[in-house]
Nucleic acid binder design. Sequence first.
DNA 1: GCAGCTACTATGTATTACGTTGTAGTCGGC
DNA 2: GCCGACTACAACGTAATACATAGTAGCTGC
Lengths: 110, 110
Amino acid sequence: MNQWITQFRKGLVELCIMAVLRDDEAYGYQIVEKLGSVAGLEVTESTVYPVLARLARDRCVTIRTAPSPAGPPRRYYRLSETGRRRLAEMIDHWQSLQNSVNQLTQGAFP
Amino acid sequence: MNQWITQFRKGLVELCIMAVLRDDEAYGYQIVEKLGSVAGLEVTESTVYPVLARLARDRCVTIRTAPSPAGPPRRYYRLSETGRRRLAEMIDHWQSLQNSVNQLTQGAFP
DNA sequence: GCAGCTACTATGTATTACGTTGTAGTCGGC
DNA sequence: GCCGACTACAACGTAATACATAGTAGCTGC
């Protein structure tokens, strides 16, 4: 009966992936690992890759392929200028949304 | 291109509706109104009623029907003990999730 | 060449928010 | 009494997304 945990995550994954990409480029599996170490934000590859594909479709990321030390070539994703702008907007909205939800959960609402 | 605003909300609506019900019972339209006045949490009836139905299915709410002053009878929803327990768990998880996302968006992550 | 590991992809399922349409009850005006 | 407006609830279909599962492909070591 903890499916709401998954639902909480829904909608926030894209924000988190973009946040991961803000400081440095990363490839898919790396993103899965990074998010795997943040409580409540564990996601699978089958989630991450479609998100990355969507970001690419929207031109929010640029992609560079480089050799991997022990496997097939890696596709490194980096935020584009468009992506940075969207991330900034999303972070703004996230802050606002947080406040709103906290208002409600703390009993202070109209 | 602001569909991520809707996506942000997805998964959090149930928590917010339950939070609204924490202090006092409310009927569907009233919940729509209350949430309509909280930034980023505006939801439509077609969202609220299925959520209420889910909560009823899971025995998280009790329902009382009472006459309305100018329309059909209202169905008032109130959190049950089960509902209160779930809400407490969800609030806990929400706090944790907030911290996690903030870690990422503020650039402090592993 | 094959197994194990890495890295990516496709497919199908489950869930949920929303837009649209509709039903039904009450009230006031004509 | 009927109709329109408003209130309150419900059904249906669409769109989006997270996840489980299955699979492909490249690289390395044996």
